[in-house]
Design a protein around this nucleic acid. Structure first.
Lengths: 123, 123
DNA sequence: GTTATAGTTAAGTAAATGCTTAACCATCCC
DNA sequence: GGGATGGTTAAGCATTTACTTAACTATAAC
């Protein structure tokens, strides 16, 4: 269940600023390879290689018509990655809640000297 | 505004399954270095290096007391990364909405044969 | 048909990454 | 003190990454 190898390549893909810029561009709508290359200060082959990484990761899909290749994001892949963070946050918040409950419980044990009993209290 | 170099190291850190496992462990609560190493099939120095990467990325903080180093996640760093996805999704959904609106508009133009005029109007 | 455009392939390279082993330091425990 | 425990440093090494340039292909436009 845990340790999805898909996440390896997705996060790897997103660790590069040029590739993130490409994804940012594509979340605003489809674009050709040269569209993607335009703001990046590097050769076209370099952009192609970045695109290759993005496609392998599943974050981007592309299709060639005539001599221009149109690229678009795959929102599902983005959602998968975002989901990983949601799970971590849930995990952390759950722990945080338990901690809060524990501290509230502690306080009840200290402040009012009347009936300091609680659920499963440590007598 | 865009292109936060912090994201480079955060996503780079998360691209490794061992490091993700460490983060997953830490979102359930603090742990020592050997705690983190226990489920990983590699030498302790290797784990240390992964920890180093996580600390540099800001995802994890650690502190040594006596001879044991306790590690904990830095939820803020996780939130920053999660935020990047939220932005991309917002961007994509905004475009999606515009597209839907456009298509609905198209339909209005087609179905009733009254006033088949197009994009100039909106009086 | 020629030329410009858009993309692609191949090969080479410097730097970064993910390990390893060996040796070492600092507590804690008896 | 003398181990055992928990962590750290250093050096080495194979692989991967992020580019580059040069050469090439396929379409579109004139």
């Amino acid at each position: 269940m845990l340790n999805h190898p898909q996440l390896d390549v997705v996060f790897q893909a997103l660790s590069d600023p040029s590739r993130r810029m490409m994804v940012e561009r594509l979340s605003r709508g489809p674009a050709s390879v040269s569209d993607l290359a335009q703001p990046l200060e590097m050769s076209l082959p370099a952009v192609m290689q970045h695109l290759q990484v993005l496609e392998t990761s599943g974050l981007v899909r592309s299709e060639k018509t005539g001599r221009v290749r149109m690229c678009r994001i795959e929102p599902k892949a983005l959602a998968t990655a975002e989901g990983w963070f949601a799970k971590r946050r849930a995990s952390w918040e759950r722990r945080f809640d338990r901690l809060e409950a524990f501290l509230a419980d502690e306080e009840k044990q200290e402040a009012p000297r009347t009936q300091p009993r609680k659920s499963g209290r440590r007598s």
